[in-house]
Amino acid sequence: MIQDTKYKLTIGWLYPELMSTYGDRGNINVLTKRCEWRGIRVDILNLSVGFDIKLLKNINLLFMGGAEDIQQQIVAKDFTVQKIKALKKKVEDGTPGLYICGALQFLGKYYKDASGTKIKGLGIFDLHTEHPGAYTKRFIGNIVTRSDLASPIVGFENHGGRTCLGDNLKPFGMVIKGFGNNGGDKTEGAIYKNSIGTYLHGPILPKNPQIADFLISKALILKYGAGVKIKKLEDSLEKKAHDYILQKIASFE
């Protein structure tokens, strides 16, 4: 149990001005507050276009949100070979991270957009995404999935791209209700080491606080050693908001 200020985490927020739509910022609020309520100090480090890769060294947790196409193109230009290498190392070292929607697509090998243009991804996750064209159906609506981390997970999805996972990459969750990665194989997002990629907005963390606690806990263990345990918080409001989505979805069955 920790309840003092000897612990401190630095959260690296990748491209906050560009990759932050659909309330993605809420995930940062939740990570910050859930640390502070436990006496863990938090620094948020904004990693904007042109950021120095040396900054990555002291980062304990990474977050990247979704974006519109034009903004994704600006970000893609900022990923130099060195930057990709440095980020890949962070992920391989087990730095926990949360990557939403467009960020999930970025982690993969490539993203083919609605016009057919192929945008190269970071190649950190063994997945690829294709948008079948502007006139195909977008996957929009409330979504429920199950995973080992928290079950059921609730969120809101809104994406045109269809993501396919490589053979060795585990999905983050399996769809109970909704579309998920591609509307076909029931997979949703991907998890590799401590990095979670997901299509879930909502934002995902407020109504699924176990995922926030997983990320915080992993970050502390990586920094301070395996013995660190975090205090449980009273999550009755979180649960009420979570259960409302389940009820709402059940009432449409």
């Binding site: 809420g26 609020n29 939740v30 507050k33 309520w37 407020p206 109504k207 009273e234 009755s236 409001l237 979180e238 009420k240 908001a241 409302y244």
Partner: peptide, 21 residues
């Protein structure tokens, strides 16, 4: 309709201390 989502948002918005239920 989404009273608990709004309540949750406010719980995380309070700078001083955690607003309880």
């Amino acid at each position: 309709d989404r009273v608990y989502d709004m309540a949750l948002r406010l719980q995380y918005a309070n700078n001083e201390s955690r607003i309880t239920y």
